[in-house]
Design a protein around this nucleic acid. Structure first.
Lengths: 338, 338
DNA sequence: ATTCGGCGATATAACGTTGTACCTTGCCCA
DNA sequence: TGGGCAAGGTACAACGTTATATCGCCGAAT
């Protein structure tokens, strides 16, 4: 199943077969020979040996996909899915590595990928660390969910617009007040450790609130954006009364908030609307379905591959729109209802 | 950064360098030359070109990881994680492909992996289809979560033991009756479309119940094992009363059951114990934490790689124990409490 | 009739390894 | 003194491609 065997079957030289099968433009092979070669290749089921081809051309048609530990877990497997689909469409495969967020492991992974001749590397991360530079030995690079230092293109969710979307959705449903923010407190000083994307999400929320001349009825920061904290925060907020909408900074917080609302004897969305971010698996499991601004993981993964395959993209930030997934957790506030 | 450059630096031939760096046992290189070579390689930061090595030796130190669509999503990314970690420990990388469960795509993926010279292929699936044979062109194969037809080793969760574990946990907590089964009805004929692993889970549950001389107070099959069905089933069961434990066939059903219990004004675990299977992300999000019999995804992935790296394993089923993750949803039944 | 040009294809040299066969040198022993 | 042998290397071929230089041939131009 090598070129040599096809050549023998077609009665030509190896080089001729190579030229024909690669549609080499400046080759002078007669139509008849060409036909014989193509037929022979087909009959023998010839498939080029990618290893040999890579050695010769130093193009492997393979990309590395490097992620910190979290990416492969639930959260961002979507990035991998999207990247995988896009890669296959272009004839590429993905060689994957996990770094557990450790610099030494990342170094090692990059080196190993380089040894294997990858044509490019996608760096995917859960948290948008600020430092997105990697010593990639000249291999083209794209960052996903990870703001770069300028060297490489970064694919990021458009968190600012997403933040605005969430607020606008509440406003359009009729909410003009009684909105509480679960997970962040704008009155507190900005924590330096907060991810870049989260900060943008905050900014979008603040801007859209301001655009409508609104203020939060209540707001509370949460150290961890976990159900437990969402439950506690929402509970406190509901006790004070006058809250008709909970804007939660992610679905896990919203999950906790749901429980607090239920426990308080209130109904979603009749008494309290809930909206959040991420479109986690939880969002579909909850009853009623949680309306949430989705992180477009698959699309981000696909765009990463495109940035790698399309030549010479300028090093920029690609902001991917965050679509809102409307389910059943947002309605008009009680006061506004007939 | 090639062997040739190291050779020149050390003042020896390329072959000598190769022999030394590979610890070739039947090579006769003097300790002095050996030292010079090692030093030169270190100083120059030499790393072997895997492509060339693969071409020469036809061993790529790369495995293919082929999954149906679902595997990369939430459910079994653990398999990938485990496989990845185990592979790296042995110096292997993973080349991944998705088939969407489609035979043609699988065919194509296998061919492409073969073109790239993978040393083995892991087939991972969400549902344990019965047919686990693949045309792998002589490439060693392991099935994960996928019962093979005999040709290849299959790594499967020990569902029978897991089923027994779930029941035993309830019994040991003091439950001697009032147990309802959410998701299956033993009185109904067996549906042929049900996955093999699910059937074994059923059998384990039935065997352990029988071992304790117990019968289900209630049981209900669910077409989809989704929260919605779990909610509906649990609701009906609780209405009839006398139910003190809900044995749910997966965490999503349990999720729905939680809501039904809460709505009925009952508490978990004081009034009703809940136990289930999978150890989904949901299990940690729920309050109180859901006690569940886990599918050991990571371990399964790791074992798959081991089966590939350890030579000449006989083709068998490897049954991986399902550990129970005890959280807070199981307690003694009300009647048994002081 | 010789040369030229172009067409059709082949021969050859890499790409970086690895494994085997071979070569050189020195030494020992018959 | 020459043959053998071991030690310490080197040379070479091969893995399957691809790109470039080369070759043979036929018709046409000189």
């Amino acid at each position: 199943m090598t070129l040599a065997e096809v050549a023998k079957a077609a009665g030509v030289s190896v080089g001729a077969v190579s030229q024909v099968l690669n549609d080499n433009p400046n080759s002078r092979i007669s139509p008849e020979a060409r036909a014989r070669i193509v037929a022979a290749a087909r009959d023998l089921g010839y498939r080029p040996n990618m290893i040999a081809r890579t050695l010769r051309t130093s193009r492997s048609h393979t990309f590395g996909f490097v992620s910190d530990a979290v990416t492969i877990t639930r959260f961002a497997s979507g990035i991998l899915r999207g990247a995988l689909a896009a890669a296959r469409a272009e004839g590429y495969f993905l060689l994957i590595a996990e770094t557990a967020g450790d610099a030494r492991q990342e170094e090692e992974a990059i080196a190993s990928l380089a040894d294997r001749g990858v044509d490019g590397i996608v760096f995917a991360a859960m948290k948008s660390r600020s430092s997105g530079t990697h010593a990639t030995r000249g291999i083209p690079t794209v960052n996903v969910n990870l703001a770069g230092d300028g060297g490489a293109t970064s694919i990021l969710p458009d968190e600012h617009a997403g933040g605005r979307t969430a607020v606008r959705t509440l406003v359009e449903a009729g909410h003009r007040g009684g909105i509480a923010l679960v997970g962040h407190d704008f009155r507190l000083p900005v924590d330096g450790g907060i991810a870049l994307t989260a900060r943008r999400r905050f900014a979008g929320i603040a801007d859209e609130m301001a655009a409508h001349g609104l203020d939060f009825t209540d707001q509370q920061a949460c150290a961890d954006w976990q159900p437990e904290q969402g439950y506690a925060a929402a509970r406190r907020m509901l006790r004070r009364g006058s809250v008709t909408a909970l804007l939660c900074l992610n679905d896990r917080l919203a999950f906790g908030a749901y429980q607090a609302v239920t426990e308080a004897g209130l109904r979603i969305p009749e008494d309290v609307s809930v909206i959040s971010f991420d479109d986690d698996e939880l969002a579909t499991a909850l009853r009623p379905g949680l309306t949430t601004v989705a992180i477009p993981h698959e699309r981000m993964g696909a765009l990463a591959i495109e940035a790698l395959t399309s030549p010479a993209e300028p090093a920029v930030e690609v902001l991917v729109p965050m679509p809102i997934h409307v389910r059943a957790s947002v309605a008009a506030p009680p006061a506004a209802r007939t």
